[in-house]
Design a binder for these strands. Sequence first.
RNA 1: AGGCUCUUAGCUCAGUUGGUUAGAGCGCCACCUUGACACGGUGGAGGUCAGCGGUUCGAGCCCGCUAGAGCCUACCA
Length: 877
Amino acid sequence: MTQEELSKRYHPAEFEQRWYHFWEDEGFFTPVVDREIPNFSIVIPPPNVTGRLHIGHALVNSLQDILVRWKRMSGFNTLWLPGTDHAGIATQMVVERELAKEGISRLELGRDEFVARVWSWKEDHKNQIKDQLVRMGVSCDWSRERFTLDDGLSRAVRHVFVRLYEEGLIYRDVAMVNWCPRCRTAISDIEVEYREVTGRLYHIDYPVTGSDVRLTVATTRPETMLGDTAVAVHPGDERYRHLIGQTVELPLAGRRIPIIGDSVLVDPEFGTGVVKVTPAHDRNDYESGIRNELPRLQVIDEAGRMTPEAGATFEGLDRTEARALVLERLENEGFLRATHDHIHAVGFCGKCDAVVEPMVSRQWFVRIAPLAEPAVELVRNGTITIVPQSWESTYFNWMENIHDWCISRQLWWGHRIPAFYCECGGVVVSEQEPASCPQCGSGTLVQDSDVLDTWFSSALWPFSTMGWPEQTEDFRVFYPTDTLITGFDILFFWVARMIMMGVRFTGKAPFSTVFLNGLVRDEHGQKMSKSKGNVIDPLDVIDEFGADAVRFTLAILATGRDIPLARNRMQGYSAFANKIWNASRFALMHIDVELRDASPIERDELEAVERWILSRLNRTTADVNRALASFRFDEAANTIYHFFWHELCDWYIEFAKPVLLARHGDAHDRRRAKRVLLEVLDRSLRLLHPFMPFITEEIWQKLKGAHPSVMVAPYPIEHEILDDPEAERMIAVIQQMITTIRNLRAERGFAPKDRFRLFLQIANDRERRFFENAGYLLIEQARLDEVVFNEPPPAGAHRDLIAGIELAVEFPHKEVSPEQGEKVRREIEQIGRELASVTGRLENDEFVRKAPPAVVDQARQRKVELIARLEKLQQNL
RNA sequence: AGGCUCUUAGCUCAGUUGGUUAGAGCGCCACCUUGACACGGUGGAGGUCAGCGGUUCGAGCCCGCUAGAGCCUACCA
């Protein structure tokens, strides 16, 4: 008998990476390219190249890998395409910081040199991401790894830009955009994070020209008054309407500006009913400026400093410094009338957290409504399903109120906008740099210096990664992809835009299902952050608990929008891995792997416990497949967990021990038990593999299966023939009896070595034969002397009724303590209450008439059982 | 302001189309080193399912209201 044994203890670090390299070397991650076979494809949400992966990446990639491994084992030719995102602002900032350490600014370096530095930085760091994903065990096809700035993807970006431009869906215009003074670039609306802050509301007097009247305006941003070009009141406001057309003297600036009427801008009910108008620095004022043909005076520049237009006193000051000085001056000169606390929403840059400045500038935009409409339709008509479905309304809500998308960024790292300008004023938008200006023939064209929003290239990811716009084999076979798994936080940034671009350019939805996972938080639901010190680093916990335990934990928590992750959860599932290890170790000590090749197990030869465990496993298999098909990773993981630990380990292995250890049965029984155990272990490992790829491979290899790896073995599916409700029912009765006896033993303070006689009254011959046959299970598990059939139990034996079978346990010479008596009385009371409830229901005509017959029958049956049991228990008093 | 979601055991959460006695993990208590496992085994304690009202023969689940929490969207000075 040749048996490979597992090492005594479970040490995941000893084998996890070994198996990853085995899988990769064997080429298991790479699918064949064949349109005629069932394919399944998925693209990774590309992490930023700058990054170290955080626990959120661990979650999203674990879930994808579970899905992908499940599909692959289920017979699909499966592609999981990996890659990274160039992450414009983030990456540029990281490299700028590196340069700063050397005392160099990017401006000194120059654009070409700087971009070269970013590329070399990227080359140095790109493996960091892959290494971390490898530690997680993800089964990506690394031969197809992509980067958003690769040549092919860049070509797709230029192609899309040019086509949208030609179709009039991309335009360049001067408009008010969100500007980050720290990143020194425009950002899109959704990159601004609004937070409520307690600021101040300042009331400032503006004297009306040639009169003693002063108009009081209220503002949270007094420094912008330097750029005021009007004061507005509501035209219907009796207090002020007579002043429209007059002017005020703008304090500090000493300019004279008009008083205008603007019913859109001014709510007469709010504050003083007078609004200062700063068209260059406020979104509403900008609109008002256009309506009323007001000049725009830019007093804050790209860096957030005051311009010469703000006046010599303020020029060069930072916005916050300028605010303090403006207030000081207003106070001194008697214009500051009042100040009070005021809670309002302030926009912060999503990347660097600086306060965003509304700024008028010339930018490129995508006219988004025509793209949004078909994208809404795809979700509405079910072509794309969003899971959980509650996100659909959020999606619709946003898509139906969508604003044009500002796509130009004043950065150097990214896809340069393919627009070329000539001195003559001609603009050429084309994929390749034109040789000469089509208008004047000049050969000196200058390319737009801006780059595109990073999300513009991400929006093309599902098809640009497959070679589009070329009609490559990969594109034909693997596009559209099947499922997208990502965090709900990038539903608008990424998912919605992929749908819009996908349907516009390929005519197809880029995926059929979107699974939005929650956000990982700490065990108390708090956001993880460095400052709170509650961050869980995936590599740390993989080192501590093993990748399998981390993956399993994430899968089991994956339901809901918040995922409260606690170390002790991972510890718990690492204990589960340890359990798997030890149960397998036990199995390997007793089974012959050669039995694999023997003839198939004949169902008729099986004992009830064997039919029971196969039936339970079959039900588990069905449940797991069903759960995975509906993205219930938690349910799938829980189901396997429960089966493996609480059915296989707690019961079946214990049931099998007497036979395996030759305490019961003969060699034939032993051989059969070994084969069943092998079968159950094999199927369980395959079932578990998507969740815990490493430990299952390590063990499965010892089983010498026909396949080279568990990851390419077929995933178990339900076989109706294995269902055995009769065995399940009878073993459940056995379990219940064992539990009852153990319970009594514990309550009466007997030691495990104390043994008793059990008396069973079984009228039904078939049942009696079953119990005669399976009596050893009761003897072993409930630690009995013997089971006696159909003989009157001695007086004083504890009586009970389980599934219609009377049982009595004979306890040797022990008084029933008052607590035990109390316990029996409590149980009797409880049953009495339930009996009353069932009886009440059955006496209710309406219940009997209206409830489904099955429910009524059930109640009747229950009533009979309760009466019988009550009778038995009363004998114990 | 609008929209979405949540409130179930000490903690973190499940609970499928309304149907007996509401589950899991961790934590807690007692006992046990029994030939895979103390990262273990056996047994146990612990819940008026946020509150109120309604629909129903029957509500943790459906409807309404109240209280509390969170998230997203939005230009209110």
